[in-house]
Design a protein around this nucleic acid. Structure first.
Length: 570
RNA sequence: CGGGGUGUGGCGCAGGCGGCAGCGCGCUGGCAUGGGGGGCCAGAGGUCACGGGUUCAAGUCCCGUCACCCCGACCA
């Protein structure tokens, strides 16, 4: 490709609206362009990267025995009503109506459609097991799109679905996909971590996420360096700590004005926040008040709350509700003198605290020196505490490490969540009718682009791994008005094409510095600079990854690039 | 959906105290250049997000709407 004839425009300035490095670089480098919040179009080099990723994924899926299909983007509501998700999926579902008043959705995922496809052909155990996949655009009307391709409302996903006769067989399909995902991310040069994940409301049997550790992820991931345990933070169980050993002080009611936060209370009383028992009031299903008590230096993990309550329909009580229910204000909520309708749960972290500070639902007052058994009694214990760095590993007790993670893949053993309501049945060898056991497996393809940029970039720009790079080689002619340099560059370009190197020749009439800056930004793994040294029969070969530069004979440089590129792609 | 912020040539920004709409990059033409977004000359390009209001006069003040970004809760 000659750059002067290509459609590729970079920017000198950082885009104003981008925050994450991958978002900035992809826009600045002219790979993508924003159309609307969470909606991006791909320019030619962006498409090249996307296709290379897709093809790596496709190759590994095919190798696993999965078969590619292409389902529809526009999906009639009927199937979604069969599984109840037309209503359950909520406002995240993009819906529309045709001229005859029929409802459709733009597919956010395709369990319904794939199950419909399979049930229309599969009747017998002889046709199973089966894994089908597709690579296709998905639509989700996210509450908050973020960070470019990291969370979009329109994005490219690889979704696969397995169909098995029984749970044992389904487990084998699941393991197959786990293995395949591991290969895929290695081929994409992504350093991923496989973590145990919540099966959530889908009610599946097993679930794992593949995440990369980055500040621009939205999941919290806990992992143990000692025993290799790794899990999404929301499912890491925290049990009761040891009882504190401390001499009990007398109970005292103290005037504590304006202490509506733990920090203020802690500094007002000169007591560490870990000695405070914090009470948080939630309103469940818009009516039922539920109080959680937790140690003052810890936070509530609302994912755990959701799992415990069995509903996502809950929220913090507002000031008015706190007053109406408890006759107090925020900061002074406690487990004493409660109306009967308030349910109270004690997080494990509150166990064994001696000489605690605790509120009593009386504005501007707290108890100090409160001790369990003597001054108050625990109720039912629960685990709703957010996991933090250093918490004990549930497997081996070593300190956990907690990081932000970006979820690139998620695999699920679904069971019969879709096959049962949609009557996707088969006959077993005795002639008995049984529901198919399903699994589903996703990879955010467009999100992978961002993840790769997050992992491979520096202040100058992107450093694409060779298998994913928009071009493997960039040829720059320093002085375009020098006849000899132009001829050499031209010759090398044609030779590189001859050898099937994915090459771009920067033949634009721009200053050398301009082209160097673009080359760094756009992230070509190899660059040949044709300059003054052509007089000595030499050009310069550079590696974007290592920064190395070598003077090479003009006659040998392309073969060397070919060797390096082939090595990288192994 | 709660909280915060921003909307001014293609891009990045200034102007905000009401009185000729500016700068840098990019773009067009020309000249000199050619190893790190380089120099000189001459140009083109704007419904100041939208709607309403105050005023002799609004980019600027007031009210409303919309869009986008960031922080939180949810998905690949």
């Amino acid at each position: 490709m000659r750059w002067s004839r290509y459609f590729w425009y970079t920017s000198k300035e950082d885009p104003a609206d981008a925050e994450a490095p991958s978002h900035k670089l992809l826009i600045k480098g002219g790979f993508i362009k924003q159309v609307s919040s969470g909606i991006y179009e791909f320019n030619p080099p962006g498409v090249k990267v996307l296709r290379k990723i897709e093809n790596i994924v496709r190759k590994e899926m095919d190798r696993s025995g999965a078969l590619e299909v292409l389902l529809t983007v526009l999906n009639p509501s009927e199937l979604w009503k069969e599984t109840g998700r037309w209503d359950l999926y909520g406002r995240e579902l993009f819906t529309l109506r045709d001229r005859n008043g029929r409802d459709y959705c733009l597919g956010p995922t395709h369990e319904e459609e794939i199950t419909d496809l399979v049930r229309s052909y599969v009747n017998s155990y002889k046709q199973l097991p089966l894994i089908l996949y597709q690579i296709q655009v998905k639509f989700r009307d996210e509450k908050r799109p973020r960070f470019g391709l990291i969370r979009g409302r329109e994005f490219i996903m690889k979704d696969a679905y397995s169909f098995d006769t029984d749970e044992m067989s389904a487990m084998i399909s699941y393991e197959n996909m786990k293995f395949t995902y591991d290969r895929i991310f290695k081929k994409l040069r992504l350093k991923t971590l496989m973590v145990e994940a919540s099966v959530g409301a889908i009610g599946g049997i097993s679930s794992h996420e593949f995440v990369v550790l980055t500040d621009y992820g939205e999941a919290r991931v806990a992992y143990c360096d000692n025993c290799n345990y790794a899990a999404n933070a929301e499912i890491v169980k925290l049990s009761k700590p040891k009882e504190e050993e401390e001499k009990e002080k007398p109970l005292e009611k103290r005037y504590t004005p304006n202490t509506d936060t733990i920090e203020k209370l802690s500094s007002y009383l000169g007591v560490p926040s870990g000695k405070i028992i914090k009470a948080v009031l939630y309103i469940v299903e818009d009516k039922e008040p539920v109080m959680f008590l937790i140690r003052g230096d810890r936070s509530i993990d609302e994912n755990k709350v959701e799992a415990f309550l069995g509903t996502e329909n809950f929220r913090l009580a507002d000031d008015q509700e706190v007053w109406n229910i408890l006759k107090t204000k925020k900061g002074f909520i406690g487990p004493f003198n409660l109306p009967n309708k308030v349910k109270v749960y004690w997080d494990n972290s509150t166990y064994g605290i001696k000489n605690a500070v605790i509120a009593l639902n009386e504005p501007d007052y707290h108890y100090v020196g409160a001790n369990p058994g003597r001054d108050f009694n625990y109720g039912e214990f629960v685990d709703v505490c957010q996991v933090e760095n250093g918490d004990p590993c549930p497997k081996c007790g070593s300190p956990l490490r907690v990081s932000k993670g970006l979820e690139l893949g998620h695999i699920f053993l679904l069971g019969t969540r879709y096959s049962e309501p949609m009557k996707a049945y088969y006959r077993d060898h005795t002639g008995q009718e049984k529901p198919i056991i399903m699994g589903c497996y996703g990879i955010g393809i467009s999100r992978c682009i961002s993840a790769i940029v997050e992992q491979y970039s520096d202040e100058k720009g992107i450093k694409w791994p060779t298998p994913i790079a928009p071009f493997e080689l960039d040829i720059i002619c320093v002085n375009t008005s020098d006849q000899e340099q132009r001829e050499v560059a031209e010759k090398l370009y044609l030779l590189a094409k001859e050898l099937d190197i994915d090459v771009i020749y920067d033949d634009r009439d721009e200053s050398p510095g301009f082209k160097f800056a673009d080359a760094d930004l756009c992230g070509f793994p190899y660059r040949i600079v044709v300059g003054k040294k052509v007089k000595e029969g030499k050009v310069e070969l550079q590696s974007r990854h290592t920064g190395e530069r070598w003077d090479m004979e003009i006659d040998k440089v392309i073969e060397e690039v070919k060797r390096l590129v082939d090595e990288d792609k192994k």
